[in-house]
Design a protein around this nucleic acid. Sequence first.
DNA 1: TTAGGGTTAG
Length: 665
Amino acid sequence: MQNNQRPEPSSRPLLKTRRHLDPTVIENLLESAAILLPTPTMDYALSIFDKIDDPDSSAYNVMIRAFTMKQFPQKALILFKQMLENAVPFDEFTFPCTLKSCSRLRGRKEGKQIHAQIVKCGFWSNGIVLNTLIHMYANCGEIEIARKVFDGMPERDIFAWNSMFSGYVKSGYYEDAVRLFYEMRALGVRFNEITLVSVLTASGRLADIELGEWIAEYTRANGLVVNVNLVTALVDMYAKCGELDKAQRLFDQMDRRDVVAWSAMISGYSQARRCKEALDLFSEMQIANLHPNEVTMVSVLSCCAVLGTLETGKWVHLYIKKKRMKLTVTLGTALIDFYAKCGQIDSATEVFQMMPSKNVYSWTALIQGLANNGQGKKALKFYQLMRERNIEPNDVTFIGVLSACSHFGLVDEGHEFFNSMSKEFGIEPRMEHYGCMVDILGRAALIKEAYQFIKKMPFQPNAVIWRTLLASCRAHKNVEIGEEAVKQLVSLELMHSGDYILLSNIYASVGRWEDAMRTRNQMKERGIKKTPGCSLIELEGEIYEFLAEENAYPLKEVYCAAEDMIKQIKAAGYVPNTADARIDAEEDDKEAAVSHHSEKLAIAFGLIRTPPGATIRISKNLRVCTDCHNAAKIISKVYNREIVLRDRNRFHHFKEGSCSCNDYW
DNA sequence: TTAGGGTTAG
């Protein structure tokens, strides 16, 4: 070239020689522009395509394939429609990519229309077409149709089997995936690494460690440990089977760890509720210079929510914004849940409103968050809005809705929602929903009604139900039904230390101090140890301990001080109840959940008695729960006191009825 | 031209 300049990326030389009219040349050029050129857009390819007078099937196929590959599935389908309108004949290469685009878009309607075209054009026996058809149906939630196509195939290759496995796994039919794998082996069909990845996901979700170990052994024996996808699936399987040490060891041995491998390991710790370790690993990931993505952040935020590390979570949110990460439904929901659990309900609402798409999880997280942060009316408003948007609620949504009703004494509404579950939505109420109803009635002082409600339950009430009733009896001083609840708990052999404390407090509430002491002594005699419900008050370096259940202060004095504070809280419009403590606690820490109530009493006592400027430290590893939070807010206003509550991770500063929080690690 | 790993609400 004389002028040393590169030619413009156009077809000028071709035009000069008029070779651009040669269809073979045009098609090669189109393929290069659409598929081989590493450009993220399709502008150049489109300009060539538009110059072709009557594009044939091959030209369309190239464009459809390129749009599918470059993540423009919508455009691929538009071109397919154009082919139909322009009567361009489909061939065997048209369908696989078009169906893949349908899968990406979860377009089952479009997929079915394309299926009709496949039958019409006589491609119903083409193996590759059928394989992608299975994949499309399985990905669009039509797993039964996918299976019908699979079963109807005269010959199934590895693609057909793998499409079926991944379909089962993506739809959550893990047992079916495992069953099919055993069938495959019984038939002597060869599987490959891709098969194993899907089956590992299934065995992890089912906690089927036996199958998982078998695959791990197979992987080692056949030298497959070089496959990053397969090893990541193994790490994930071990983590989901509760074998975190094995998962970590395998992760450590990996030569190359990508963002998915790190995310799998972080989520492993997160799901095992080993949140501190998950966050440590997240720091390590950054030191290793690996960039987290949306999926990593979901696990990280979930840990921040559990630990109550507001500052860390806020940093994660800033990072998400700075890196312009996509606010996916999952990520948005994790953010809502994080902010709500840290008491920042306005930020949770803001995130919800920013989300481009929402599902039942996001709505439920917000409703639950609002209900737990004392905004029951708003929670119900969002439920109404959700219904107006035609989002179908599920069983979890109703736990949020019913708990909003209980915080606000909405008995009639509670009944209506409870009845609507099965009538309108075909959801049979579970133990938890009955528990919510008992709580609603109990908080509203309808103790007899709550008791009758339990009696009419269609299945045996569990200890939580009786404990909820017992807590209501304590709040509303009902000795008779309280004793009945205890009788039931004794018969179920599920009496906890907290139940004795509740019964003792019921006696105390009606001035039966001897019975109150007798109940506590009974607990000691029966060797039932109470998790110390103590609060520590840190004042000028000195630590003062408050033990509610011991005789550090006479029972009567502790009780009356707590009662006085509860009156103040009620006067300010909030109804405290032990059910919140139970909701707040870790699932495996029931003992702590129950003792939390006594702790709140101790805090109440401490708040009133301690001098200004004191820091109340929450004992054990519990978070400052909603009740404590609200109590402190109200006390700071009513008693005009500055209060600092401190739990494992945060300082909560209360002043004039509002709160600000700081992480301290 | 078709198949694969990590994520959310109780």
